[in-house]
Design a protein around this nucleic acid. Structure first.
Length: 471
RNA sequence: GCCGCCAUCGUCUAGGGGACUAGGACGCCGCCCUCUCACGGCGGUAACACGGGUUCGAAUCCCGUUGGCGGUACCA
């Protein structure tokens, strides 16, 4: 099995493209075949090196590797020209000066009678765009692994333009030549290409008839259902994290993204939802791909990412987080002591769904709170709160050891002695240490922060609240 | 307009003539757990687009309607 992923570098890789890449990759890895990466840059206006870089970068981040390429379509111009010459020479293609307007006019007059055949503008072999000659009779049947057979009557097809007037080839021609030359056995791509397929099949047949790879087998096709935004419309920037880069910035794990994307349009058949990449490779099958378009639901991705985060060994998660912070929050990354980071990760692991949630939750271990929100202070550092906090300070100050059990025992004791609810002890303390009402478990937090820093922050909190409370 | 694809809870889906009182997951709601936030546990809400056929029997097969989407470029 030889498959390919063939993005056109006219923008960043969005999740639809990422899923297409994933499906092809799963097929290649599951069959022991090869994945060819091909950059479809025949549109010189819109294709940029930056976009190529972005796409390659996105694939690397997703950990989807390829076996051949990247092949740049633009670098195959000579081969394309040669193939085009053959079709022109034996009459499978012809030049026509018909413009888009001419075709429009023809269709207005002839409607569904018959496709445009270069009427009135053919014959001159010197200039004009090159069109593929489509026979009036018969039909081209697309055998699709997902959809079954789809029949396209030739009578309805226009002779497609396969090369510009200057001889540079167009998408539907380049694709056919490149797929043929690369020995692609399965073309797996988005459903938006289904209507292109008969044109490509016609080109393929013309190529073979003209003596180019006459023995070659035609590839099998599989058209994946399209991916839409939450509103059912085409995916775009306003749908939040629509590109792979945005997914990375939002703190998703590549393994979780692969898991989620695989389930968009495909299901293992049983109720399996959380699947490792190994399982995906093993279980993925084109035959089980759905025909319905799917919507991208970030809420489910978040949940799934949380599950993957919790399944990761803490050391690995710490590595992911360190890498994430380095890219997304560079000013902080260098200050993080690895041991403390690992411990902070351990006690935060079950509380976060995406990597970006780590820092807001655990920054207290690396820097003191900047300020305490006014409402928070009024709620938890009132007279009563300061009283329990002062008591807490005293107890912690005199602890023999500052490990978790010791801290826990001490705090539990205060609770008993002062006869108050746990939160009446813990929340003032939490606010003093983190500046917020949310943190990892209080015993773990206090212990990890250490006695010195804990006492210092309690003092700061007490100092800063005395004055305002007394007025 | 023409050609084509698609149609099960809000979302992703299971289902391929009787196993369907339509299953699972996310979300949402409630309860439990609980030092905050989460995690976890339990329960609940919620769907076969519509109309005709075929059949003893249809979510499943056929036709039509409606709706969504794609293509119809000297874009990919």
């Amino acid at each position: 099995m030889r498959v390919r992923f063939a993005p056109s570098p006219t923008g960043a890789l969005h999740i639809g493209g990422a899923r297409t890449a994933l499906f092809n990759w799963l097929l290649a890895r599951g069959s022991g075949g090869a994945l060819v990466l091909r950059i479809e840059d025949t549109d010189r206006e819109r294709s940029t090196p930056e976009n190529v870089h972005q796409i390659v970068d996105a694939l690397r981040w997703l950990e989807l590797d390829w076996d051949e390429g990247p092949i740049f379509q633009s670098e195959r111009a000579e081969r394309h020209r040669e193939a085009l010459g053959r079709l022109l020479a034996d009459g499978h293609a012809y030049r026509s000066t018909a413009t888009a307007q001419d075709v429009k006019e023809y269709k207005r007059l002839h409607g569904a009678e018959r496709g445009f055949r270069g009427e009135g503008r053919a014959g001159n072999q010197k200039d004009g765009a090159v069109r593929l000659r489509v026979p009036d009779e018969g039909a081209t049947v697309v055998h699709d692994a997902i959809r079954g057979d789809t029949r396209f009557e030739h009578i309805h097809l226009d002779d497609p333009v396969i090369a510009r007037g200057d001889g540079s080839v167009l998408y539907n021609f380049a694709v056919a030549v490149d797929d043929l030359d690369a020995g692609i056995t399965h073309v797996v791509r988005g459903e938006d290409h289904l209507s292109n397929t008969p044109k490509q099949l016609l080109v393929l047949e013309a190529l073979k008839a003209a003596g180019i790879a006459p023995e070659a087998a035609l590839p099998l096709y599989a058209h994946l259902p399209l991916l839409h935004g939450p509103d059912g419309k085409k995916l775009s920037k306003r749908h939040g994290a629509a590109s792979v880069q945005e997914l990375r910035a939002a703190g998703y794990l590549p393994a979780a993204v692969r898991n989620y994307l695989a389930l968009l349009g495909w299901g293992a058949g049983d109720d399996a939802t959380i699947l490792s990449t190994e399982q995906l490779i093993e279980r993925f099958a084109l035959e089980r791909v759905s025909r319905n378009p799917a919507r991208f639901d970030e809420a489910k991705l978040r949940w799934m990412n949380g599950v993957h985060i919790r399944e990761l060994p803490p050391a690995m998660l710490a590595g992911e987080i360190a890498g994430y912070l380095e890219i997304e929050r560079p000013p902080h990354a260098h200050r993080l002591d690895p041991e403390r980071l690992q411990r902070a990760v351990e006690i935060s692991q079950e509380k976060i769904q995406v990597l970006s949630e780590f820092w807001p939750l655990a920054r207290l271990f690396f820097e003191p709170p900047v300020a305490i929100d006014e409402q928070t202070r009024e709620r938890w550092l009132d007279d009563k709160g300061r009283h329990t906090l002062a008591e807490t300070r005293t107890r912690l100050e005199h602890l023999d050891t500052f490990d978790e059990p010791a801290v826990e025992t001490a705090l539990l004791d205060i609770q008993g002695d002062l006869e108050c609810k746990p939160r009446e002890i813990y929340q003032p303390l939490r606010v003093a240490l983190s500046g917020t009402t949310v943190s990892p478990g209080i015993f773990e937090t206090v212990s990890l922060l250490g006695r010195e820093e804990t006492l210092r922050r309690i003092d700061t909190a007490l100092e800063h609240t005395h004055f305002s409370e007394d007025t």
